[in-house]
Design a protein around this nucleic acid. Structure first.
Length: 284
DNA sequence: GTTTAGTAAGTCCTCACGCA
DNA sequence: TGCGTGAGGACTTACTAAAC
């Protein structure tokens, strides 16, 4: 078994289809078939179930897939380390909270790409838990997350401090009144959600009337339409407040302050593109 | 008819080995 | 050390079979 076999196996496992895997790898289908069969012969066990729906991993295949991810990541990292160049270039995948992506990322990324146009930057959004796991699994190079991350493999730098506010439709109602309305929140694991739930618990108020939304825009739209209330960074709601679409309420100090950290793996090989990105976000 | 997995046969390339 | 040779592996082309 060599690295090519492992990459072929890994691609077939991901694509669940030999023909598609062959296209991805730039081989003909028969070659991929032959390499998989040879690999199965070598380990003396089937790695895939050949079903009508395609190639499905057996338990042995699942086990090998776990190793293949780690090995191929290490190989790619080794290649990156010897291809290190002075000019920042190549892929850079960054994760960010929905709110951070909407408010801070456009300007920050635009400035970065103006300086380093050869970097192929990708942005993925999610909540803190998701993003931290993606960093730990080497799926993304680093991520902007809410609060400090307590993990021995993680490095982190404070990049933004935000003020959280409660928002509702533009109304004259008092804070206590609007808190009875449905809560418009991002998915479970969203730090804003956890914070709001803690606050309401302290106020002896129920949080069972929760409406989940996938995007910041949907929450802002829902709040301005009177669908409910939400807790968001002040910077993310400023535009809507100025337009008179929503009303902003100051919340208790204990829940108001919120830090965004940039986290990355300690053992992650830092490419020139990543080094410059780190400098860029800490200098801005 | 189309798509996909698999087989057979041939080509090309790499590498070990022998020889000058 | 450099070159020629042969074995074996990687890969492609052309094809078949099965499923939809």
């Amino acid at each position: 078994m060599d690295s090519k076999d492992l990459r072929i196996f890994h691609t077939v496992a991901i694509e669940k289809n030999i023909t598609r895997a062959a296209e991805v790898l730039g081989y003909v289908q028969s070659n991929v078939t032959a390499r998989i069969r040879q690999l199965e012969k070598e380990v003396s066990t089937p790695l895939f179930y050949r079903s009508k729906k395609g190639m499905i991993l057996t338990q042995a295949g699942e086990n090998l897939f776990g190793y293949s991810e780690k090995i191929l990541h290490l190989l790619d990292e080794a290649l990156k380390s010897v291809q290190y160049t002075e000019n920042p270039s190549g892929p850079l995948t960054i994760g960010a909270l929905e709110t951070t992506a909407a408010v801070h990322m456009p300007k920050l990324l635009r400035n970065y790409l103006q300086k380093y146009p050869e970097v192929k930057l990708s942005l993925v959004t999610g909540h803190t838990g998701d993003l931290v796991q993606k960093v730990l699994d080497y799926e993304i190079d680093g991520a902007f997350v809410s609060g400090k991350v307590d993990h021995p493999d993680m490095e982190q730098v404070l990049v933004f401090e935000e003020e959280l506010v409660l928002i509702s439709e533009n109304t004259d109602e008092k804070l206590k009144e609007i808190l009875k309305k449905p809560m418009l929140l991002l998915s479970v694991g969203c730090s804003m959600r956890n914070r709001l739930e803690q606050w309401l618990e302290e106020e002896d108020m129920e949080t069972n009337n929760i409406m989940e939304f996938g995007t910041l825009e949907a929450i802002l739209g829902g709040a301005s339409a009177g669908l409910g209330v939400s807790m968001l960074p002040k910077s993310a709601v400023k535009g809507r407040e100025e337009q008179g679409l929503i009303r902003v309420y100051t919340i208790p100090e204990a829940y108001r302050n919120y830090q965004v950290y940039f986290v990355f793996r300690k053992d992650f090989f830092q490419t020139r593109a990543f080094e410059r990105f780190l400098e860029h976000i800490t200098c801005d």
